[in-house]
Nucleic acid binder design. Structure first.
Length: 412
RNA sequence: AGAGAGGUGUCCGAGUGGUUUAAGGAGCACGCUUGGAAAGCGUGUGUGGGGCAACUCACCGAGGGUUCGAAUCCCUUCCUCUCUGCCA
């Protein structure tokens, strides 16, 4: 959520920044109008409430002394009417305001490049060189004939579900353990969290109210399957005031993730790239505003080094404004090389949301006497399924089998 | 799932219609004291909004209602605990 004071006072700057994210000015204008209207109505309401409070106190005293209270009572009744009318107006405006405010995306950082979509993302650097083959490299589903069972995944559930067998199942498990250990050594403490969360939790991180269609909802309950560990882990601190000395808090968490992939019909239907259920090891950090850039770099480095340690060639991309997610002020994607597809594909996405989620989720820290909003950051380290198929493709041999990276051998 | 009890600030906890303007305690911060610390004493200390400020409004799980006035009474709902049932 954006700071309504910022919208009231620096309207032009907010519009300018949101243009990068392709948000129309009418929405911001509307938000500003309502917030100003709310402010003026509150200014009318509050003196009435003050009077009501004071007079009601008098009422008690007078009644005790046996004074005549009929006139006072009439006055207070009339005042009560006015208060209830104004309260209705104020409540209504508050609701309107929050409905609009919760649907407006975060402002991008100044160094975020302009651009329409993923084609305008800016490559920052490449790490490692893609391997060369003396045969035509295959795609992962050609390599993994007996290891990933797509047909039975569909039988059990529906399309975009799969079953891992034997060495693939074991590799998946090895990767989760390896990733968690790697992150823990970098100072991220491990947490295990629920996979089913409520509406408040999803509103805190920004998935709701706007993106309900992307979520699996539990029938008959106000509960949803998590689309990423970012949701429960960030919300660990919802409605809390953190002691300043505890910051930054750096966490890592393995969870399954569930996404409807509502908008991606027809994309990546073949193979394991885009599934309704997938495993991911996530990094989540809570930091003071002046720490968050440093923490962001640490997270990018952690995920990138993890890929390097697995011998996987990858590149860093700075997302342009048009491709930036709803809550992100700044995002760096890591894309790993897939020889079978002959291209780089996303395997990690690291974002700084600044105080966008913190304002929604009311995550604050004590700065001397003042409570201030923290910055929250999240990033994958890494998407496990995609890492597994990247290993299959990059370590494949001519006979259709594949090797296991050296660092994983102790985990297999 | 059924029955009972309960949800008050960072924590514990008092509070069944009118100085609650949320007591008291712990913790925390600062000061005094001390060679230093502890203890002791003093002061400060909930959240959110408006205002340069004095100050002011709202908030006692959430949402409605009754009343001139609600933490307190009524309704709805969520959650926690205990017992019973079920279950890995």
């Amino acid at each position: 959520m954006l700071d309504t004071k910022l919208i009231q006072n620096d309207f032009e700057i907010v519009c300018e920044k949101l243009r990068k994210k392709k948000v129309g000015e009418e929405i911001i204008e509307n938000l500003r109008t309502i917030s100003l209207e709310l402010k003026s109505n509150r200014a009318l309401l509050e003196p009435l409430q003050a009077e009501q409070n004071a007079s009601s106190k008098l009422f008690g005293a007078w009644a005790k002394e046996g004074k005549d209270i009929n006139e006072l009572k009439a006055k207070l009744s009339a005042n009560k009417q006015k208060i209830s009318e104004l309260t209705k107006i104020v409540k209504n405006l508050e609701e309107k305001l929050s409905n609009i405010a919760l649907g407006i995306p975060n402002l991008p950082d100044i160094d975020v490049p302009n651009g329409e979509d993923e084609n305008d993302n800016v490559e920052i650097k490449k790490v490692l060189t893609p391997p060369t083959f003396d045969f035509t490299p295959k795609e992962h589903w050609e390599i993994s004939d007996n290891l990933i069972d797509f047909e039975r995944g569909v039988k059990l559930s529906k399309s975009r579900f799969s079953v891992l067998k034997n060495r693939a199942a074991k590799l998946e498990r090895a990767l989760i353990n390896y990733m968690l250990d790697f992150n823990t050594k970098r100072g991220f403490s491990e947490v295990a969290v629920p996979y089913i969360v409520n509406r408040e939790t999803l509103t805190g991180t920004g998935q709701l109210p706007k993106f309900e269609d992307d979520l699996f909802k539990i029938e008959g309950e106000e509960l949803f399957l998590i689309p990423t560990a970012e949701v429960p882990v960030t919300n660990l601190f919802r409605d809390e005031i953190i002691t300043e000395t505890e910051l930054p808090i750096k966490m890592t968490s393995y969870t399954a993730c569930f996404r409807k992939e509502a908008g991606s019909a027809g994309r990546d239907t073949r193979g394991m790239i885009r599934q309704h259920q997938f495993d991911k090891v996530e990094l989540v950090c809570i930091a003071k505003p002046d720490q968050s850039d440093r923490v962001f770099d640490e997270m990018v480095e952690c995920a990138s080094d993890l890929l390097t340690s697995l011998g996987l060639a990858h590149r860093h991309l700075m997302l342009c404004g048009g491709d930036l997610g709803f809550g992100a002020a700044k995002t760096i994607d890591l894309e790993v090389w897939f020889p079978g597809q002959n291209r780089y594909r996303e395997i990690s996405s690291i974002s700084n949301t600044r105080d966008f989620q913190a304002r929604r989720a009311k995550i604050r820290y004590k700065d001397g006497k003042k409570n201030r909003l923290v910055n929250t950051l999240n990033g994958s380290s890494l998407a496990v399924g995609r890492t597994m198929i990247a290993i299959m493709e990059n370590y494949q041999r001519a006979d259709g089998s594949f090797n296991i990276p050296e660092v994983l051998k102790n985990y297999m």
